[in-house]
Design a protein around this nucleic acid. Structure first.
Length: 223
DNA sequence: ATGAAGATTGCCT
DNA sequence: GGCAATCTTCATG
C-alpha cells in the first residue's frame, strides 16, 4: 500500500527512521524500478544550517516549502541529482529527508542499464566496464536517482498518489529489521550535533560508504 | 557580471 | 587517497 500523507506530516528526524525499509518506485515507459531504502538523512529546514532551505525559499527549493509527501529533486556538482521527500512538523518548516541509498527490489536490469551508461564522454570504443554489482546500483544518493531515472522533471512529484510515476510504498513489514537500525550525527555540522540525523541498516551492503568531503583549493591563475 | 562552493561519483596514481 | 567533471545557486562588486 502507498504511504499516506500523514506519515510525512511530522518532523523529518521522526520520519527518517520510519522510511527505512519503505520502497520508492518509479514507473516510466521503460518499465518499473523499485528500491527498498536502507540509508536516509534528515534535514530540519529553516533552522538547519546544512539545509538548502536555511536561507529561505528560492526557485530551486520551493517544493520544500510546500505540502508534505512531495519529492524535492535538486541538481548538484554539475551532473548529479538527489531526491528528498518533504516533511512538515510545522507549517513552512521546509524539512525533508534525503534518500541516500537502497536495495533494488524490482527492475534490476533497467536500473543497471541506466547506471551503466557513461555519464558524459563515451569514447569511440566503449571501454568494457565491469558489470555493476547489485549492491552498488543504488548505493549513494546520486546513484539511487540514476537507477530510478529521477531528474529535475520529477521535482514536486507527489509520492502519496498512485497516479504519480514516483511513489512510496510500505515495506514488507519486517519487524526484525528495526532492531538493526543505527543512527549517528551528521558530519561537518557543529550545531545541533546532539540530534541523530542519519539512519541506516547496520551492516547492510547497500549503505553508502562515508567519504569526507574535501574542498578544492582555489584555481591557480596563470598571468 | 563574476566567482566560489557544493547533501557526489568514478577513475587516476 | 587524490582529483577531475560540470553547472546551478547564492553572494558580492
Amino acid at each position: 500500500m502507498l504511504i499516506p500523507r500523514e506519515f510525512f506530516a511530522r518532523r523529518s528526524v521522526e520520519v527518517a527512521p520510519d522510511l527505512l525499509g519503505c520502497v520508492l518506485e518509479h514507473e516510466t515507459a521503460d518499465g518499473l524500478v523499485a528500491v527498498e531504502l536502507t540509508e536516509v538523512e534528515a534535514y530540519a529546514g529553516r533552522s538547519d544550517p546544512a539545509s538548502h532551505a536555511y536561507r529561505g525559499k528560492t526557485q530551486r527549493n520551493a517544493v520544500m516549502f510546500g505540502p508534505p509527501g512531495h519529492a524535492y529533486v535538486y541538481f548538484t556538482y554539475g551532473m548529479h541529482f538527489c531526491v528528498n521527500v518533504v516533511c512538515s512538523g510545522e507549517k513552512d518548516s521546509a524539512s525533508a529527508v534525503l534518500l541516500r541509498a537502497g536495495a533494488i527490489v524490482a527492475g534490476e536490469d533497467l536500473a543497471r542499464a541506466r547506471r551503466t551508461r557513461g555519464p558524459v564522454s563515451e569514447g569511440p570504443v566503449s571501454k568494457g566496464r565491469a558489470r555493476i554489482a547489485s549492491r552498488d546500483l543504488a548505493r549513494g544518493p546520486a546513484r539511487l536517482c540514476q537507477a530510478l531515472g529521477i531528474d529535475r522533471s520529477l521535482d514536486g512529484a507527489d509520492v502519496c498518489v498512485a497516479g504519480s510515476g514516483l511513489r512510496m510504498r510500505a515495506g514488507a513489514g519486517n519487524p526484525a529489521r528495526s532492531a538493526r537500525i543505527v543512527t549517528g550525527p551528521r558530519v561537518g555540522v557543529s550545531s545541533a550535533a546532539e540530534i541523530p540525523w542519519r539512519f541506516w541498516y547496520e551492516g547492510d551492503p547497500t549503505v553508502s560508504v562515508y567519504r569526507a568531503h574535501v574542498p578544492r583549493p582555489p584555481k591557480l591563475v596563470t598571468p
